[in-house]
Write a protein that binds this DNA or RNA. Structure first.
Length: 477
RNA sequence: GGCGCCGUGGCCAAGCGGUAAGGCAGAGGACUGCAAAUCCUUUAUCCCCGGUUCGAAUCCGGGCGGCGCCUCCA
């Protein structure tokens, strides 16, 4: 069995083969850092992380690039409103984005190119397109890509360009395009652009790059003419990615992307998330509401990336319970009595078959929902097995634990829960003190007093469990 | 108007022709001083109607109901 991925360009699930054996070049369309990323953005970025981690899990050498768009209409508008420069406006949002990513357990990319650092290369790129007559400079100081010069235009989205509703996208008269469907590679600088520092010199005068151009230039610069995977949200298929293909292939003469993967947009509480509805949810808000990052990560990867996902608070609760089950399981394995003279258990078999199922699920176009099932089957079957035995062989336990951690190396749930559910020393000391009091009470048969203490701990979010091996406690919620 | 997606138990969600994974919630039981954790048991014929097939949630046609893109958007 090997990895199969859905390709937007072919609309089918195809065998994945990187251009270079053993090495995968991935380009992910990152955020425009003019505002905080919201939870819908993170569905995509979390999926990208799954791809990143799984490719590495499969022993590919992965080069993962994610761009940060720091110049475009929205960035300029925002910077202008705040009366700050492009750089001043985007820097903090870029930092917060990376911090949020870390909180959710998203592994860092190898490179985070920023558009403003590639202006010269973009200009060179446009020059090539003009020279090959795929682009033309217009009287309005802009340079446009002539889509009629690229016969495959529209293939990714599967549209016939002649059916495009001319005029739906732009007001004709404002631009000096030869064809209303052509898109800008370079835009003449406005006064506002100059004010916020979003203008550079070019053979066509002062100006700034068009949005679509940056990804083509940065990906080709960082990864070469042909990418193995290009990831993005579904909204980017057209026109963004369509345009990227046109300009890249026209410029390099090489196939641009071997596999296009697009994540379906998230719904929030039953509605499409949109600014007009005012239902944008950011990671910060959810954390402030008390939800933990592991639950958020779980919910966002609990359905297949091409399927619908409705993000709800209720779902978050369910995810919190699911993550807790995983944590309890891991803890149980860590603490299970070991006896190397114990009789053989099913643990090695269960571990093996869990890993097989997991791989099969992920190989099937990154089916994380199915992969989660694999991990939970391991949980319940191993739990049942452990219930039957007073002790297990150390090596058996290790196999089960390793399988769990191996799968989590991709899903990242325990990993995130461990780092986000840490308790500070002061609280720990207080809990330990309380538990000692309670242990004394119980030893004396003063159960009412013991229950009062347990109640007190519960109010602070500490759950107490008495087991055969003694009392343990954990933070819940 | 063009292109496309979806409709599975109370909620979420797999399934890609062979008689319905998993998570959450609920009920009953075991265990427990009581709990918690864990285990066991328990809850679906897959929107509707036709068709293809020995056999369909899975393929085809039609209908109903949600939704997305075609314009900045992950």
């Amino acid at each position: 069995m090997s990895l199969k991925v859905y390709n937007t360009a072919t609309r089918s699930v195809d065998e994945f083969e990187p251009l270079e054996q053993g090495r995968v070049r991935v380009y992910a369309c990152g955020p425009t850092i003019y505002d905080h990323a919201h939870i819908g953005n993170f569905r995509s970025f979390l999926f990208f992380d799954l791809v990143h981690r799984y490719l590495e899990w499969c022993d590919y050498e992965v080069c993962f690039v994610m761009n940060l768009t720091d110049v475009d209409d929205k960035v300029i508008e925002a910077a202008s409103r705040e009366s700050v420069s492009l750089e001043e406006h985007t820097r903090p949002f870029g930092e917060v984005f990376l911090a949020d990513s870390t909180v959710l357990g998203i592994r860092p990319a190898d490179v985070y190119p920023r558009a403003t650092k590639y202006i010269e290369r973009m200009v060179d790129f446009i020059k090539r397109l003009v020279a090959s007559e795929n682009a033309y400079s217009a009287d309005d100081g802009a340079v446009y890509f002539a889509i009629d010069s690229f016969s495959a235009y529209g293939k990714l989205k599967g549209i016939d360009t002649s059916t495009l509703k001319v005029g739906a996208r732009v007001d004709h008269d404002e631009y000096d395009k030869e064809d209303a469907r052509d898109f800008a590679l370079w835009k003449a600088a406005t006064e506002e652009d100059e004010t916020v520092g979003a203008a550079w010199n070019s053979p066509w005068g002062r100006g700034r790059p068009g949005w679509h151009l940056e990804c083509s230039v940065m990906s080709v610069t960082e990864l070469g003419d042909t990418l193995d995977m290009h990831l993005g949200g579904e909204d980017l298929i057209f026109p963004h990615h369509e345009n990227e293909i046109a300009q890249s292939e026209a410029a390099t003469g090489q196939p641009f992307v071997r596999n296009w993967l697009h994540v379906k947009h998230l719904f929030v509480e039953g509605q499409k998330m949109s600014k007009s509805l005012g239902n944008f949810v950011t990671l910060r808000e959810l954390l402030d509401e008390g939800y933990d990052p592991a639950s958020i990560r779980h919910l966002l990867i609990s359905s297949h990336y091409r399927g619908e996902l409705n993000f709800t608070r209720q779902g978050l609760q369910a995810s919190a319970s699911a993550v807790q089950r995983l944590l309890d399981f891991e803890h149980r394995l860590e603490e299970v009595p070991i006896n190397d003279l114990a009789e053989e258990s099913q643990l090695p078999d269960l571990a093996r078959s869990a890993l097989d199922s997991f791989k099969m699920a992920m190989d099937n176009d990154f089916n994380s929902a199915d992969a989660l099932a694999a991990i939970f089957i391991l949980v319940s079957e191993v739990n049942a097995e452990l219930d039957l035995r007073p002790a297990v062989i150390g090596a058996d336990r290790d196999q089960a634990l390793n399988a769990l951690r191996s799968m989590d190396g991709v899903l990242g749930l325990l990993e995130v829960a461990h780092t986000s559910r840490v308790v500070d020393d002061e609280v720990t000391a207080w809990v330990e003190r309380k538990l000692e009091e309670r242990a004394n009470a119980r030893a004396n048969g003063e159960y009412a007093a013991a229950d009062v203490i347990r109640k007190e701990l519960e109010e602070r979010g500490i759950l107490v469990e008495d087991g055969p091996a003694g009392t343990r406690w954990k933070v819940v919620g």
